[in-house]
């Protein structure tokens, strides 16, 4: 039974679990149910309170492997990969899922080499092949223009990173029971060649687009830097974050962390709104898996409109203020 276990790699930061951890468990639950196996998760952290670990169980984990040491304060790929290598050899999971975050996308490819197995990047769909029990991993490729389904037939664990926000989190069940297993620390895991010196988190204009539910982006149609302010206003009104096309970033209207598309962020928010963005293939690749796409553009043949759910064709400089006006009115009347 152990050899059929489905594993996820949870992520924690500053003593709290990140929401991607619950997304992975929601994915993992479906796979474990199909396989009739257990769902296990690994947490590597310097300090995570018991209540946080319990949240993993109430979000569907059957077993939590918890490695706790001051050396794990920061996510360092080499150290994390060493621990996972040990755990994989010890417990031989069938499947290991991680989030396609900067951590997951560094640690898992490193681990794949250490344990000699396959890895599929940034998957948006997972299922189990009925005849073999193999994990079918589906991901957008070539700029999102094709969907490739990939499997790892002869190596274990079968590993994949999962696009953040591409999974609805299953509701919490605080009556669920599970086991928390503390794994003893081995000093040999600690790789001191790479160390984190500091993290600047209080940068004025910084944004974590991958974690946002709503992203409102502006492009060349805004014409000049000052006009980008209305994107900011619209994003604030929606409680969302500001994105930008490559054009807008190259022109200095927004900083690089805001860039959406193949050479920026690939995102999957609940709502993506592209204002004055024509939608180059690279841009579309970065947003195609959004739940709902809205476009505002003066050109009805713009690429972005091809993939949108709702589009307004017209002058953004009259449309955006009208959106702000109507939303403002609405909020005041409630």
């Amino acid at each position: 039974m152990k050899d059929r276990d489905v594993w996820t790699l949870s992520e924690a930061h500053n003593g709290k679990l990140k929401t991607v951890s619950f997304e992975l468990l929601s994915r993992g639950r479906a796979l474990a149910d199909t396989l009739g196996s257990r769902l296990c998760t690994v947490v590597l952290s310097d300090s995570l309170p018991e209540v946080e670990l319990q949240k993993l169980i109430s979000h569907n984990a059957d077993i939590v492997y918890y490695v706790n040491n001051p050396c794990l304060k920061e996510t360092v790929c080499e150290t994390f990969a060493n621990i996972l290598q040990f755990l994989v050899k010890e417990y031989t999971p069938h499947v290991l899922l991680a989030a396609a975050t900067t951590s997951g996308r560094s640690i898992l490819p490193y681990l794949a080499v250490l344990v000699h197995t396959g890895l599929t990047a940034d998957c948006t769909e997972l299922s189990i092949e009925p005849e073999t029990g193999n994990l079918l991993q589906t991901r957008p490729a070539i700029g999102g223009n094709i969907m490739a389904t990939i499997k790892t037939p002869d190596h274990r664990p079968q590993m994949a990173t999962i696009r953040p926000k591409s999974t609805r989190i299953l509701s919490e069940d605080t009556t669920r029971t599970g086991e928390i297993i503390q794994v003893n620390w081995d000093p040999a895991w600690f790789d001191q060649r790479v160390s984190v010196l500091e993290t600047r988190e209080d940068i004025g204009d910084f944004v974590s687009l991958e974690e946002a539910d709503i992203v409102i982006s502006g492009g060349r149609g805004l014409k000049k830097r000052d006009n980008f302010q209305i994107i900011q206003e619209l994003a604030e009104t929606f409680g969302g974050e500001v994105g930008a096309s490559r054009d807008a970033v190259d022109r200095g209207w927004a900083n690089y962390p805001h860039q959406v598309g193949l050479s920026g962020k690939t995102i999957s928010p609940r709502l993506y709104m592209g204002i004055g963005i024509s939608g180059a293939v690279q841009h579309l690749a970065g947003i195609k898996t959004s739940e709902c796409i809205v476009a505002v553009n003066s050109d009805e043949h713009a690429n972005l409109l091809q993939v949108a759910d709702f589009a307004i064709v017209g002058d953004l400089f009259s449309i955006v203020p009208e959106i702000l006006r109507q939303l403002g009115q609405r909020m005041n009347t409630i």
Binding site: G144, N145, D309, I319
Partner: peptide, 30 residues
Amino acid sequence: PTRVVKIETPKVTRTCIMVKAIDEESVRNA
């Protein structure tokens, strides 16, 4: 270690509601 099982062209599953906004009234309605 990995094998490509299949390659598919994703169908355009979204049907776009497209509204034109050319003057004050149509902007408001859109």
